[in-house]
Structures are given as structure tokens and as C-alpha cells.
Amino acid sequence: MRENILEVKNLKAYYKILKGQVKAVDDLTFNIKKGEILGLAGESGCGKSTLASTLISRKPPLHHISGEVKLNGKEIMQIPEEDFKPMRLKNISLIPQYALDAFSPTKKIKTFIIDLVQEHGIKPDREFFDKVKERLYLVNLDPSVLERYSIELSGGMKQRVIMVISTILNPDFIIADEITSALDVSSQRFVATMLANLRDEGIIGSAMFITHDLSILYQIAERIMIMYAGCFIEIGPTEEIVKNPRHPYTKALIASLPQVGIQYQDKKLSGIKGTPPQLLNIGEGCRFRYRCQYADKQCEISPVRERINEGHYISCWRWKELGSDNNA
């Protein structure tokens, strides 16, 4: 059995605001194996970025409520900031969703990188920048971007610069949050493949790849985890999740993927009816029950996480009766 790089157990993290608690990460349990790329998908607002922030920073109003997270066997939710800081970029690194926004328009990209790595106690010497240039080349960028200002770069170019910076210290574990969503398909393929290649070459250890785009996860993830409204839905091997989803929500999500070759005048596609529930002070019960055609009385109690088979887990009271037919 492969060892785990990350072990998350009953993790809860809420935003504490005036009106109460936004329960954006509510009882998540999962592992990521060494060398694995885990895909994380789910509807907009379901807590994917919140999970990423919980693992890496937890700035107020976001608070860790309960549950544990072990990185390389070491508990990281309780350790003080000064001990955690040196681990960022090196042991755990995040390529943030708002990467496009991270650059100050008045700074040269190079200055930005210098400031950032110095903050992490790294000397931006010649050797360091040689490595940066080498990596820029890998993502198909000319090293001259270092001398440019962020407003001079296109959206995709900025995204790739961020990617280079986040991986420069060869992190054991990297979280990539929607890094391909602003890219054209050829750059998407390039960036996603590059992440997998970096992993194959041992430059990065493991990764959690967050996206709403299941078709990209299909290309690079070993397993996929699905979240809904802050909760765990299903995790399993990529092939099983995509071709044989078991949770009614996963089934509906897969069914709403854009199919190739359909025009709106020929056939109007439709998404999942209804909207996700408000996470503020949300109570008991399966959070998908309001939109689920199979929901019954029992679903008013929060479902427990059950094992379907090795590596495939689900949180749904009715998964056994529903079976594995994919016509939800």
C-alpha cells in the first residue's frame, strides 16, 4: 500500500460572520497518496477554495472548527504560524484561484517573485533565477516576461507565471485551484500535462487539482472527489466516478456536461434544477436533498460516509437501492 501524503479526518472549517457560521467545509474525510493527483470537483460555491485555504492558511473569518489534517504524518491544524510558515511553498503550496489578481500592476514580475520568495526566506540569487527561467521555458513562456509588468501579460500568461512560482521549491504537495479555467484548450492541455509530468519526474510530490471541469480531471486525476454545499459526496477512482457514478448528485453532474456537437437551436441543454442551499447556519441532513429526486424522510438526517469498494466512498442513504445505472 502506498503511503499517504495528506490525511484529512472529519474536517470542519467555517466562516464566522456577524450573522453566524457559513459552513463551507463540513465534515470532510479523505486521503491523498504519495505521488497521487486527486481531482476535486463540485458546483460553484461548494467550498473547494475554502478547503484549499483551510489546508494552507486559515485567515479570519475562516476558522478551523474540528477534525484533523496530517501532512506527511504531522498534524498541521494546531501548529503555530511560525512553525507552519517555512512549510509553505516547500511542503505544501497553493496555486490560488485568484492568481490573475495576485500581481500588483506597478511591479515587474521579477520584483514580485523576489518579494515573494524573500518572504519565505529564500535568496533570489542567480541560481534561483536560472531555475525560474528553466521552468518558464517548460510552460512555453519566454524568460523576458520577468522584465514585464503584469498588465502587459495576457490572462493565460499570468496563470503560467503563478504556476512556475508555486512549484519552484519542488513542493511535496501542491493544491492547484482552477489553474486551467482561464486557459484555451491547448494551454489547458499543456498546463495539466505539465503538472502530471512534474509529478512523474518527482519535482512535485502529490497534488490536489481543483476544477469544475470534469473532462480535465478525467485526463490527469487518479481519483476524483466530489463536494456539494460544503459536504463530502463521493470519492473514487476516476474511471468509476465518470463512467459509473453512484451518488445522485455525481450522476446529475456528469449528465450535465456539455456534449460535443450540440447547438442551442437544435437542442436546449439544461442543468440541475434548483440552487444549492444557503450555507449560513445550515442544519442537519443531506444538503442535496432539496434537489434530489430520490430524497425521502431519512435524508433529513446527515448521511454517513460508507465504503463501496477499495478507494470508493459515498455519503448517501440510498446508494445501495439506486444501484449503478447512470440514468439519473
Binding site: A41, G42, E43, S44, Q97, E178, S181, H212, D213, L214, A252, L253, S256, L257, P258, L269, S270, G271, I272
Partner: peptide, 8 residues
């Protein structure tokens, strides 16, 4: 940044 269902 929208998932398939919201996008449609």
C-alpha cells in the same frame, strides 16, 4: 469558473 450545470 462555472461548473457545467450552472453554466448551461
Amino acid at each position: 469558473m462555472l461548473d457545467a450545470s450552472t453554466r448551461i
